[in-house]
Amino acid sequence: MKSPLARLGDWAELPFFTTTFPAIETALRAEKRNVFPPADQIFAALEHVAPGDVRVVILGQDPYPTVNHAHGYAFSAEEDTRPLPRSLANIFKEMRSDIGAAPESADLRFWSDQGVLLLNTILTVPEGQPKGHETLGWQALCDQVLARLADSPRAYLLWGSSAQKAAAGVDPTTNLKIESHHPVGMYGNMGFFGSRPFSRTNAWLRQQGLPAINWANPETT
């Protein structure tokens, strides 16, 4: 059977996969709780966007800990997820305010089609236990991904302290860094709403001579 790492392309060259991931694999095999996302979707975000194609990075904390929600992309959920996860509902609320529209589905993979890397700092979670895999070592992968992406300017949407801490080393003079509170719950009212991350990112991309992201309508991507 073909190794799942074979689907990672250039990302598979990161040291994480030889130095850290074997121990994580062992821990996941020993895990008695349900773990999300399914094993074949853990690296979906990286499999979808090669390093050279990344234009925007959105960092999340860890996957949704609810059955049938997480599918390997930060903040995204399976298409038929209802109601929307609270963080995604607030993201869409801000998007409507910012650019006048938002997707009808929880599935954000069409963003990745356009070079948006939807990466969590922790790539697995036990059912019902946010940050339950915080100590497994996943953060080393996020660190190495960000280091790999330092080769050219990119936009970084950093919502919440976990994302901002992970991307503290990203140079704000060559990259666009938009930092605000995390969109979930009450924190959405304390700096996330009104931050206009979508229009600001598109304006910056145009300044770089790059196409804007179609945030709202997958049918026109």
Rank of each mutant, 00 (worst) to 15 (best):
N120P: 01
G9S: 05
D98Q: 00
A50L: 04
M186H: 12
T121S: 12
A77E: 11
I99C: 00
E134T: 06
T135D: 14
S105K: 08
P211G: 10
A23G: 07
A30L: 15
L149D: 00
F36S: 04
P15S: 09
T121I: 12
R206T: 15
G60Q: 05
M95I: 03
R96D: 01
L108V: 04
P51K: 02
R109W: 06
V57T: 07
I24V: 02
G185Y: 09
S87C: 15
W138P: 00
V145Y: 05
E127S: 09
T220S: 14
Q114G: 13
E13W: 06
A150L: 05
G137M: 06
Q41R: 15
R148L: 06
L88H: 01
H48P: 03
T121R: 08
L119R: 04
I178F: 03
P15T: 02
G194P: 08
R96I: 04
K177F: 01
A168S: 13
G60K: 02
R148T: 03
N68E: 12
W215A: 10
I213N: 08
R109N: 12
S199E: 13
A30K: 15
P22E: 14
A166M: 09
V56T: 08
F193H: 12
R154S: 03
L136V: 01
L84H: 05
R7F: 09
A106Q: 04
G132E: 11
A203Q: 15
E31C: 10
W204S: 11
A216I: 03
W111K: 04
Q208L: 15
F193K: 10
G100L: 05
D107C: 11
P83Y: 05
A74Y: 02
E94I: 05
L123N: 03
Y187C: 05
E25F: 03
A166F: 02
L157Y: 00
I122N: 03
L176D: 07
R82K: 07
A70Y: 01
D62K: 06
R86Y: 09
S112C: 11
A106N: 04
Y187T: 09
R200V: 10
G169H: 11
G9F: 00
Q41S: 14
Q164I: 12
F110G: 09
E94Q: 10
